[in-house]
Simulated assay, not measured.
Amino acid sequence: MSDRFAVPPDVMARQVGEETVILDLASGTYFGLDPVGAHMWQAMVEGKTLAQVCERMLAMYEVSRGDIERDVLALGQKLFDKKLIALL
Rank of each mutant, 00 (worst) to 15 (best):
S27Q: 10
L25S: 11
R56W: 02
T49G: 03
D67N: 10
A26Y: 03
A13H: 15
M1R: 06
D71N: 14
E55S: 12
E19D: 14
S64D: 11
V53R: 04
H39Y: 03
D10P: 00
M57Q: 14
V72D: 03
P8M: 10
K83E: 13
A74T: 14
K78E: 15
P35N: 08
Q42H: 11
Q77N: 10
D67I: 08
A6Q: 11
S27D: 04
L23D: 00
G17L: 07
D81A: 12
D81N: 13
A51F: 06
R4S: 08
T20F: 05
E46C: 03
T49P: 00
A26S: 15
V11W: 04
L87Q: 08
M40L: 09
R14S: 08
L23P: 02
Q15P: 01
M57C: 09
L23R: 08
L25H: 07
L73D: 09
A74R: 15
A59M: 12
A43M: 09
Y61A: 12
V21L: 14
D10L: 08
A51G: 09
I85G: 00
L75T: 09
G66Y: 00
L58R: 14
L58V: 05
A26M: 07
E69R: 13
G37L: 06
F80W: 12
L23M: 12
S27F: 04
G32R: 15
M44N: 05
D67T: 13
A13N: 09
D24G: 06
V53E: 05
K78D: 14
G32P: 00
L73H: 09
A6Y: 11
L79M: 07
A13D: 15
K83F: 06
Q42K: 11
M1D: 08
W41N: 04
G47V: 13
V11I: 15
D67L: 13
L84V: 10
E46G: 08
S64G: 12
L75Y: 05
F31M: 02
M44E: 05
E19T: 12
G76N: 05
A74E: 12
D24P: 01
L33F: 02
L73Y: 02
C54D: 10
R14Y: 11
D34M: 05
L23I: 13
R56G: 09
V36C: 01
K48D: 12
Y30N: 06
F31N: 04
L87N: 02
R70T: 10
D71I: 07
A86F: 03
L33W: 01
V45P: 01
F80I: 00
L73R: 12
Q42V: 00
P35C: 07
K78R: 14
E55R: 13
D34C: 06
V7E: 08
V7N: 01
I22Y: 03
D10E: 14
V16T: 11
F80N: 03
D67Q: 12
L25K: 15
T49I: 00
L23G: 00
V11K: 03
M57G: 02
D34H: 07
S64T: 15
A26H: 09
M44H: 04
G32K: 13
A13E: 11
V11H: 04
M44C: 07
L58W: 04
L33V: 03
L25Y: 04
Q52S: 07
G37P: 01
S64N: 01
M57F: 06
Q77D: 11
K83Q: 14
L50R: 11
I85P: 00
P35L: 07
A38D: 02
F5C: 01
L79F: 04
L75R: 04
R65A: 11
